[in-house]
Nucleic acid binder design. Structure first.
Lengths: 261, 261
DNA sequence: ATAGTGTGCTGGTCCGACCAGTCGGCCCGG
DNA sequence: CCGGGCCGACTGGTCGGACCAGCACACTAT
């Protein structure tokens, strides 16, 4: 899209807001590790003198940092605003917005989830250690036990299993994406009029399928693990996505698709 | 992690900031389509009377909306703040933050990029139409032509080719992730002391490889397209990632890995 | 030593003011 | 008559000061 001939030689002379400079400086300090999670920023009145700006400006800057999840203010706390540990709420919010604004349908979310979690399983199969395998087995048992506690508890156990899978894959981005897309798809699904929670039989079936995934990971069968995960998700979402989006899901399902050595 | 026995019956009585309510109401209006991109919000002084709060509060709310990329204010514009079309800058910023805070190394970014772009190619091979194929061919020719214009122009042409691939895959999330991770990885790479731009020979090689990808997509050979893309990215990043992260990349490279029918 | 209280600070919200920038209509010159 | 430049009304950006409720800590009284 960028025509190199037209490439600007000069930067746009956009006026820089004062609060933006404040944001930038504090961000920089956090990114550079000069401000570590748990540490405190000076109070607003102190910052006001340090930056030589009014409190309104400081507060606007803090609002931006707060909405980015970098900082938290509590009224009355004499220690000042707290620098927060990094969290994925920012990505989550952005992606939810993408979904809510209607740019994103359940079909695309489901397909993406199949791809991401499939890769998680594939990688996990390749790199898993024995203790990790044991933890997975434990999680699978937890799922079985959770059937009796109802669909909510079962979902939580299912998520725990999948999270473990993502963690074993040893890729932070994969883990974050998996968790985010799962939640966003869940939100969207909950708003779907056709949605109904899992029945006991479906939960039993899900446990059986996760056991097969577990076996594939034990065997270091990356392709099998990937396909199993994809198919399970496909069956889960099949009934909810619009007919127009089904073909793409079937494509990703792995009917005539991925097979690994 | 959630113990259903301990599940709260009551919502936490967290005090709600006034500016948060303002943010929520405006967000809601945008998400519900009552405020479309290009439309204008009332002026700050007008909002102040509508919400019955002070201008400082309105401004803090607008700062939050602005940092989320939903709205833009320009001083002096009598039409008021503008509602923006959705953009991925929010996700991009969040992911950059994840990378900058050091939670994310080049290795993980590269691996993730291999996975994402590999899937793009795989899907593209499956669903591409004739016009899309022609556009891809055009983009490949553009890459060849861009060699003479230097590494920057070549990179732009390369990105154009990859963007096209992502677009053909027909999954918004995939496209967004591809673009974001590409940029973030690029930023990180540019900070790598060992980094140096592509030489002419490397660019020629890249064109040849993209041509092979193109051929695979023409043949609807999803697995081949995926593997080609992965290997190319692997070779690109191989020299820059730390030795500790190399094994994971090799794993994803597809040495003993994905092969499709 | 401990429990209760008080105080000094915090952040949250409001008010009023000034400045620079932008848009749109008005006026003037062609 | 038409077009271009000027001006004013309003915009957002920033400032200063003010008040309130809430929290942490130290001090006090038991």
């Amino acid at each position: 899209m960028v025509d190199p001939q037209t490439a600007r030689r000069f930067a746009p002379a956009r006026p820089v807001r004062v609060y933006e400079r404040v944001v930038q400086q504090i961000e920089e300090a956090i990114y550079l590790g000069q401000l570590r999670p748990g540490e405190r920023l000076p109070s607003e009145r102190e910052l006001m003198t340090q930056f030589a700006v009014s409190r309104a400006t400081i507060r606007e800057a803090l609002r931006v940092l707060q909405s980015a999840g970098l900082v938290r203010s509590r009224p009355g706390d004499p220690r000042g605003p707290e620098v927060l540990p990094f969290s994925t709420t920012g990505i989550h919010k952005s992606m939810s917005a993408l979904a809510r604004v209607g740019q994103l349908g359940l079909g695309e979310l489901a397909q993406f989830r199949m791809l991401i979690e499939g890769e998680c399983a594939s990688l996990a199969a390749a790199v898993r250690t024995e203790p990790q395998l044991a933890a997975l087995e434990n999680a699978a048992n937890g799922m079985k036990a959770a059937i009796a506690l109802g669909p909510e508890a079962f979902d939580a156990a299912d998520v725990a299993f999948r999270d473990l899978l993502a963690e074993i894959s040893a890729n932070t981005l994969l883990r974050v994406c998996a968790s985010v897309v799962r939640e966003v798809a869940g939100d969207l699904l909950a708003r779907n009029p056709a949605y109904r929670p899992n029945g006991v039989e479906e939960m039993r079936r899900a446990v059986r399928r996760q056991r097969r995934v577990l076996a594939a990971i034990r065997d270091r069968a990356a392709g099998r693990a990937q396909t199993l995960v994809r198919r399970q998700l496909y069956d889960y979402y099949r009934g909810y996505v619009s007919p127009a989006e089904l073909p793409a899901l079937e494509l990703t399902r792995g009917q005539s698709a991925p097979r690994r050595a």
